[in-house]
Design a protein around this nucleic acid. Structure first.
Lengths: 117, 117
DNA sequence: CAAATATTTCCACGTTCATCGAAATGATGG
DNA sequence: CCATCATTTCGATGAACGTGGAAATATTTG
């Protein structure tokens, strides 16, 4: 049951090209996560700019930060994302076409496996 | 399969207090929709401000406008919202806790019935 | 401690966003 | 066609956002 402010914060955090891309990247990276530098390189965004965006995502509670020696590893917070989707689904469900059955094994990204890459 | 730009547009459209409230109101209003004035009053936002927000939601494809004599009736576009949720779900599904089973009949808002109000 | 590495914070800049009164546009009725 | 009602567009203003180089902050290594 996220409150409106949290929902708005999460939506706003994802409503930006680089942040959405970063979040998607982290979701695909799985629990292993990725260091800030790798994300910046993958996205082609300067470190300082990316740092700003990662801070936004962190503040929204969508990702988490954890230091691993020199690097700061970022990981997606699935629970937070599911809470957001759940909240949105609740408020979208008007009896009409509800419960989006997309993705989730359809073949989009069978992630979480390629952690040994 | 919304493209990134569409997803960002929709997220950005919902990431604002008054717009999220307006969208929720329209979802609950069902196919009947609501005239701009009624939304403005319900939300306690000046007409001109609300008009701006409704335009944003419309541009994002989340709501639709239809004139009914003097009033402009707005209705939520469930398909668009479901497409958004589907896209987000796809990119959130990392094997972990996927498919948000919240709402959808749980008792949140058995809407779509009270259209004869 | 000094050098090297990984990231963040600071700062200044231009852009976009949100607000709301006032004026303009559209539609209806007498 | 004039008055009225419903809504939007215009315009100005202040706040928040996105950007990226330079400097500052951790952390490991020699």
């Amino acid at each position: 049951m996220m409150d409106s402010a949290a929902v708005i914060g999460a939506l706003g955090a994802l409503a930006q090209e680089h942040r959405l891309a970063a979040f998607r990247l982290l979701v695909q990276a799985g629990d292993e996560g990725m260091p800030a530098g790798a994300i910046a390189e993958a996205l082609g965004v300067p470190n300082s700019s990316l740092s700003f965006h990662l801070a936004q995502l962190t503040r929204a509670g969508l990702i988490r930060q954890e230091r691993q020696s020199r690097s700061l590893i970022y990981t997606a917070d699935y629970a937070a994302m599911n809470a957001l989707l759940g909240d949105l689904t609740e408020n979208c469900c008007a009896g009409a076409a509800c419960a989006p059955d997309a993705g989730c094994g359809s073949g989009a990204a069978p992630v979480q496996e390629r952690k040994s890459a």
